Deep mutational scan, measured.
Amino acid sequence: MDALKSAGRALIRSPSLAKQSWGGGGRHRKLPENWTDTRETLLEGMLFSLKYLGMTLVEQPKGEELSAAAIKRIVATAKASGKKLQKVTLKVSPRGIILTDNLTNQLIENVSIYRISYCTADKMHDKVFAYIAQSQHNQSLECHAFLCTKRKMAQAVTLTVAQAFKVAFEFWQVSKEEKEKRDKASQEGGDVLGARQDCTPPLKSLVATGNLLDLEETAKAPLSTVSANTTNMDEVPRPQALSGSSVVWELDDGLDEAFSRLAQSRTNPQVLDTGLTAQDMHYAQCLSPVDWDKPDSSGTEQDDLFSF
């Protein structure tokens, strides 16, 4: 819950932080000083300027060897085509990944977070970031790969997607708890209302004896509580940590079903599988986004697919 609360507080303090972009060759504004600060901008989305290598189908939802083989196929196909790589912007948030063309600003792909089953910074092609997700059109699994400016960037994108998945799962947990509370309150309110109706004398007997209905007592009954809980029953509950912020979080049926399955089948359902080692994760978390744009010590960066 700490990640969720800190993310909400950060967004309320400075929503404009989320509009910064990394990996864009110096076009961005001043960047936060450390990885923790940038992680807090996830709610509205972190932007990464990358190059799209392509996509291939895979048979399993996750796995280092599986993704490595898929990336190898994608890279080989991209090299064989001889075409310049498409420059894209990857927007990562707890909602998922939005992929747009840098030149036309046209939407290429919009992947809900619950469809993503794996992401990684490839070991062999260490400047490549990739994720595996279920197609929104059918049940097939797709591996999408992107060329980053350097290994640090690939690791940073991988960690960002993993963190977005974690925050999304926490949102789901909060929403589920809130819905259970509202359902319980609604049920209790309905029981109270039913009890009051059972003990209320029939209207005919009131008229016969000349008694008047006590409207004041009726007004004191917990009807307002019942209506408050039943009027918006169809509205999706939102985490309290975000009250007053500009973010509107809505959970669709697909996300609810997917996270429910994860909660039942996995020990740590909030953790998205990645190909990063503990050492890689520690190294990337210690980086400032400013470091992502620094040239690798191995030599001059080449803006070309064939540089790796």
Rank of each mutant, 00 (worst) to 15 (best):
D2Y: 14
A3T: 11
L4K: 07
K5L: 14
R13A: 11
S14F: 00
P15V: 01
P15S: 08
L17W: 13
W22N: 03
G24E: 08
G25I: 12
G25H: 08
G26W: 11
R27F: 12
H28N: 14
R29Y: 10
R29V: 07
R29I: 14
K30I: 13
K30M: 15
L31I: 15
E33H: 14
N34F: 03
W35L: 10
D37I: 07
D37T: 08
T38W: 15
R39Y: 05
L42N: 12
E44H: 10
M46Y: 10
L47P: 10
L47D: 11
L47C: 09
F48S: 01
S49E: 07
K51G: 00
K51R: 12
G54F: 01
G54T: 00
M55E: 12
M55A: 01
T56C: 03
L57P: 13
E59A: 11
Q60H: 15
P61Q: 13
K62R: 03
G63C: 11
G63F: 12
E65H: 14
E65R: 08
A68E: 01
A68K: 01
A69C: 06
I71G: 00
I71Y: 01
K72W: 15
R73G: 09
A76D: 05
T77W: 02
G82E: 01
G82M: 01
K83C: 09
K84S: 15
L85H: 01
V88L: 07
T89Y: 09
T89V: 13
T89F: 09
L90S: 00
V92M: 09
S93I: 13
S93C: 12
R95K: 03
R95W: 06
G96P: 02
I97T: 01
I98A: 01
T100R: 06
D101V: 04
D101L: 13
L103Y: 06
L107R: 15
I108K: 07
V111W: 09
I113E: 10
Y118V: 03
D122C: 00
K123D: 05
M124G: 06
H125G: 00
H125C: 00
K127Q: 01
K127D: 00
K127S: 00
A130W: 00
Y131V: 00
Y131G: 00
I132P: 00
Q134F: 09
Q134H: 14
S135K: 04
Q136V: 13
H137Q: 15
Q139T: 12
C143A: 01
C143D: 00
C143T: 02
C143M: 01
C143H: 07
F146R: 00
F146V: 01
F146K: 00
T149Y: 09
T149E: 08
K150G: 12
M153Q: 07
A154K: 00
Q155Y: 08
A156H: 05
L159E: 03
T160Y: 12
Q163K: 13
Q163H: 15
A164F: 10
A164G: 14
F165I: 02
F165G: 02
F165D: 05
K166G: 08
V167I: 13
V167M: 09
F171K: 10
W172K: 02
W172H: 03
S175Y: 04
S175R: 13
E178H: 15
E180S: 15
E180K: 14
K181Q: 15
K181C: 12
K181G: 13
R182G: 12
K184M: 08
K184R: 14
K184E: 09
A185C: 15
S186C: 08
S186K: 02
Q187H: 04
E188H: 04
G189F: 03
G189R: 05
G190C: 01
G190K: 04
G190A: 14
L193G: 14
D198L: 06
C199S: 12
L203A: 09
L203R: 08
K204D: 05
K204E: 15
S205R: 13
L206Y: 05
A208S: 13
G210C: 10
G210E: 13
G210Q: 15
N211W: 03
L213H: 09
D214H: 09
D214F: 04
D214L: 14
L215K: 15
E216F: 05
E216T: 09
T218E: 09
A219H: 13
K220C: 04
K220N: 12
S224E: 13
V226G: 08
A228K: 05
A228D: 07
T230C: 05
T230S: 11
T231L: 06
D234M: 03
E235V: 13
P237W: 07
P239Q: 10
P239K: 04
Q240K: 15
A241Q: 06
G244L: 07
G244H: 05
V247A: 02
V247K: 07
V248R: 10
V248S: 10
W249Y: 03
L251Y: 09
D252R: 03
D253F: 02
D253R: 13
G254E: 14
A258I: 05
A258L: 03
A258F: 02
A258P: 04
A258Y: 05
F259A: 03
F259R: 02
S260Y: 13
R261Q: 06
A263S: 12
A263F: 04
Q264S: 15
Q264T: 04
S265V: 08
N268V: 02
V271Q: 02
L272V: 09
L272H: 06
T274I: 08
T274F: 02
G275S: 05
L276D: 10
L276Y: 08
T277L: 06
T277H: 10
A278Q: 09
Q279C: 09
D280M: 07
M281R: 11
H282V: 06
Q285V: 06
L287R: 13
D291F: 04
W292A: 03
W292P: 09
D293E: 06
D293V: 06
D293G: 08
K294W: 09
K294T: 13
K294I: 10
K294R: 07
K294V: 15
K294G: 06
P295Y: 06
S297L: 15
E301C: 07
Q302E: 08
Q302S: 06
Q302L: 11
D304K: 08
D304T: 08
L305D: 08
S307Q: 07
